[in-house]
């Protein structure tokens, strides 16, 4: 079943729409879907009040739900939060907490996603073709339960603290990343193809941050381990290039790995003296 959603207006108020989730639409009729609850500012609304809903080939197994959101939903928060199966395609920008705590299924955004996309994610995949905001895959305030699994791929740039407190899984960023990428991570891999802001990997205990572009500066609390020719992203994928390898963070007695491409970071060449 494919469910097409069309925003009925340009949203001004923040909207919280946990119902835009394949699991919630599974087995529902069009009328049921229209009645699903969401919040616009401090007012209770229904999905039907804010979106035009169209169902195509309902006959095909209603088990496999794909939601296609057509239009800008950057004010709509928590799309796909907690989803376990199915697929969401957003043709436009997506709001905060996209796919927060998701367990399975797939979300694709042909646009940008605001902060906390994939926050506390446990499984599944998120693909963002534009940019992502801050706290990509990071946990809620006060929590150290970061990303536990799954994969996030961002074609554009991301903000600060991508993959903070990450335990497991993969984040791939093809653009640039902000500061504190992989802050206090305990496992998993973050790959940054573009340049990376400062403090990457600080306070990390384990896991790996791979920076192919320029890294602003290497944290002083890491030890230089030498030059490597390969950095592994997961079982199936590795990057072949010459990398400086730093291990840390010393402040947390960590053994996390920070790979920084040699050719793009001549300002780190003084470390080669230590070899």
């Amino acid at each position: 079943m494919i469910v097409n959603l069309y925003p009925l207006k340009t949203f001004k108020l923040p909207i919280i729409a946990e119902c835009i989730n394949p699991d919630m639409l599974k087995g529902k009729t069009l009328d049921d879907m229209r009645r699903l609850e969401l919040w616009e500012g401090n007012k209770r609304r229904t999905l039907g009040e804010l979106f035009k809903i169209e169902i195509s080939n309902p006959a095909s197994s209603s088990e496999n739900v794909t939601i296609i959101v057509n239009g800008d939903v950057s004010r709509v928060k928590r799309i796909g939060a907690g989803m376990k199966s199915g697929e969401i395609i957003i043709k436009g920008n997506a709001g905060m907490h996209l796919g927060a705590e998701m367990h399975g299924g797939k979300i694709t955004v042909y646009g940008n996603a605001l902060s906390w996309a994939g926050s506390m994610m446990k499984g599944g995949a998120i693909e963002i073709h534009g940019d992502a905001g801050d706290y990509l895959g990071a946990p809620y305030r006060g929590s150290k339960e970061g990303m536990r699994g799954g994969k996030i791929v961002v074609s554009g740039n991301v903000g600060n603290e991508a993959g903070a407190y990450m335990h497991k899984g993969v984040i791939k960023i093809y653009g640039n990343a902000g500061q504190f990428t992989g802050f206090r991570m305990r496992g998993g891999t973050i790959y940054v193809q573009g340049s990376c802001g400062g403090r990457a990997g600080t306070c990390m205990v384990d896991g790996a941050v791979i920076v192919v572009g320029a890294l602003e500066s290497a944290p002083p609390t890491f030890t230089f381990e030498g030059v490597k020719n390969k950095a592994r992203i997961d079982e199936n994928e590795a990057v072949e290039a010459s990398f400086y390898l730093f291990v840390g963070d010393l402040t947390e007695n960590g053994v996390g790995k920070l790979y920084v491409a040699r050719d793009r970071n001549p300002h780190l060449s003084n470390y080669e003296k230590l070899l």
């Binding site: 946990p139 809620y140 305030r141 006060g142 929590s143 339960e145």
Partner: peptide, 8 residues
Amino acid sequence: LLRPEDHY
């Protein structure tokens, strides 16, 4: 104050 993650 310490535990937003406990409340939410």
